[in-house]
Design a protein around this nucleic acid. Structure first.
Lengths: 209, 209
DNA sequence: TGTAAATAACTGACCAGTCAGTTAGTATAA
DNA sequence: TTATACTAACTGACTGGTCAGTTATTTACA
């Protein structure tokens, strides 16, 4: 019944991390069993311990792989755009964030981290230093460019980060966690439009287009 | 060593819920033991089962008590304010949200729900229907008043809810979950000021004060 | 004294981590 | 080429400990 066993030591670590990401995010780290991860990865439980020395180490590796990848990718493009057009950089960030929110798979790790961080200072610190701090730096850069080029008002980077991340975070939560099966979801296009308008021009009735 | 045992059946349920809230939020629902909850409530484990029929039922009760209380309280004041001054209602909401974010105890249940909802559709639905839906209704009311009185532009209530809740949510997370012990926190006053300015007047350099 | 409230010892299911044994793949040599 | 010896990947049964829920017993108080 189980496919013939194979020996593919090079592919295993990533496959195990993929499996662990799904299983941990789905069932929660504590409730997830190593047998579940093994089954998902098409491996026996014992083999898991050839590649990762404990369940905790596996969680660590999942978060590290994700954080490093995303931090490198997203931040590069963000800084690059900000140099020529800070407004476009902000809009790009919102577009990406909302696009990502549409795909459940992509939000697996952030949701897992939000679940586990409260009881694991180690995971919280990992995510903070590897991803959030980098993100705040990038926001500071975009903001400074905008102010320098005369298109943004002066606010603190930490505030801007929260004001931008937050609405995307709440959208992810309402879309993937607090969804009621029957209810109509807020369309990404519509939300993006509203969000750009609120964040860039404000809620006040003004003279902007 | 243990204080003399007492029989106070009227006070127990609330005391147990208080204890469970703290313990669940701190350790996570799955990892928390019923013995921990009992100890925190100053009771034996067996006694817990006189008041709640299972661990799940206890979690349910924790979330229900919180949601009902907050939904009733906050929404009343919000709707009342919006009638006379919609801008003040929004500012009040942000002030309250940020004030609450300062006190770890008050954010215990929302953080617990965020942790458990991904793996418990039941809890997610409870929180959604008892609290989030009510909140969205209140936002729709505030918004309509603002538009009617000519102080707000027209956006969707669902979008506004996400744009307001989100920045508070991210502030709570960065303050209580992803804090690095040594690092300087963003002061509530400063953040509130920035946030009002971004959400009401927009990030764009405009003609507003 | 009677009974509801509370306790603490107990049970059974569950699971992380281990390890003795099995199998796939590779090197050696006839 | 094919038999033989060897190594490293992999398996799954097992163990020690944990914990939700139960129950026999004790305690508080009307």
């Amino acid at each position: 019944m189980p496919g013939k066993q194979q020996r593919r030591p090079d592919d295993r670590p990533d496959e195990i991390l993929d499996a662990a990401t799904r299983v941990f995010a789905h069932m929660g780290f504590t409730a997830a069993r190593m047998d579940d991860v093994a089954a998902q990865a098409g491996l026996s439980k014992g083999a898991l311990y050839l590649y990762f020395k404990s369940k905790d180490a596996l969680l660590d590796a999942v978060v590290t792989r994700y954080s490093d990848t995303v931090a490198a990718q997203l931040m590069d493009t963000l800084v690059q755009r900000a140099r020529t057009d800070p407004v476009a950089a902000i809009e790009f960030l919102l577009e990406q964030g909302i696009a990502v929110a549409t795909d459940p798979e992509t939000t697996l790790v952030p949701r897992l981290v939000m679940s586990e961080a409260p009881r694991s200072p180690e995971i919280a610190a990992l995510y903070r230093t590897k991803l959030l701090d980098t993100f705040e730096e990038a926001m500071a850069f975009v903001l400074n460019e905008g102010v320098r080029q005369g298109v943004f008002r002066q606010v603190r980077a930490a505030s801007l980060m929260r004001a931008l991340m937050g609405p995307i975070l709440s959208h992810v939560l309402l879309t993937h966690v607090f969804t009621i099966p029957g209810s109509a979801a807020l369309s990404p296009q519509v939300y993006l439009e509203d969000l750009k308008s609120i964040l860039l021009d404000g809620l006040h009735l003004g003279e902007a287009a």
